[in-house]
Design a binder for these strands. Structure first.
Lengths: 139, 139
DNA sequence: ACAAATATTTATAATAACATAATCATTGTG
DNA sequence: CACAATGATTATGTTATTATAAATATTTGT
């Protein structure tokens, strides 16, 4: 008889199922098609559409090296999706801000990415509510 | 007053949370470090460790073009992680089979990828059980 | 048997992703 | 003020990823 730490095995099982669910519902291609830009760029755009970020913050969030963020933002800027705005109090930092058309494109990506898989939609409402409740506890 | 389809909004919200959870717990880098091969190769290896697959089936599952699967499997084979076995009844198809060392490496990747995020482990056991129950309904 | 279809491979090219060093401007500190 | 530290950029190169066309071997259908 082996005694196992309470929820940890269940947690592992749940996590595996969860990760599979998300990975098998991958919409990167669809998003790239719809937006006309690479998924990496969409990801950056969606992030700055949430709130303006400095180049460095963006690099950290995207786990990219700063030089590569520079060229990525260059491309987004040329496409008119973001603009660079000097930081008001520190002239070393550049804030990346989504333009209106950038926000629209980010929204388009959101619409695709937030579309839940069929299996989830088919769940009884009570179970969905329960899922929502539990997920808010995960922090 | 607009009437909205019952669970679909909740489903969308739940899905967003879920996707964020999985994406923010990305372990691709860690897995690549630990295995010494690219994540794409790990993915293929883990898949054939589950069961032997033909090149074509693998291409479909990985959403890759067949020529690229060939070179990917070439690499895995050179590393001694898989072998190619001709299909018993159709000599056009090549079955990709994980070797013992390939299965070990796949297991190593599994151990990392299946490790749940802290927030999930902290959940009350009852909620975890409930999560598991609901997730089995998602098919 | 023969033509069409299927599974894989070879060859090749284009592009994307990733990393490093060096440079410039600006800011904080002794 | 001099100097170290910071944020961003430029330049550059390497490796991965992705795609396409063409070739080979085998099977299937007529």
């Amino acid at each position: 008889m082996t005694r196992v730490p309470a929820g940890s095995d269940v947690a592992r099982e749940v996590w595996s199922t969860l990760a599979d669910l998300v990975i098998n519902h991958d919409r990167k291609r669809e998003v790239a098609e719809a937006t006309g830009i690479s998924f990496a760029k969409t990801r950056a755009l969606r992030r700055v559409a949430l709130e303006p970020l400095s180049m460095g913050e963006l690099a950290t969030l995207l786990v990219m090296d700063p030089p590569n963020v520079t060229t990525l933002v260059d491309d987004l800027q040329e496409a008119g999706l973001v603009r660079r705005q000097p930081h008001p109090s520190d002239r070393r930092v550049m804030l990346v801000v989504a333009t209106p058309s950038g926000r629209r494109l980010a929204q388009l990506a959101d619409d695709i990415l937030e579309r839940p898989p069929a299996g989830l939609v088919r769940l009884p409402v009570a179970d969905l509510e329960e899922l929502r409740r539990i997920l808010t506890l995960v922090r």
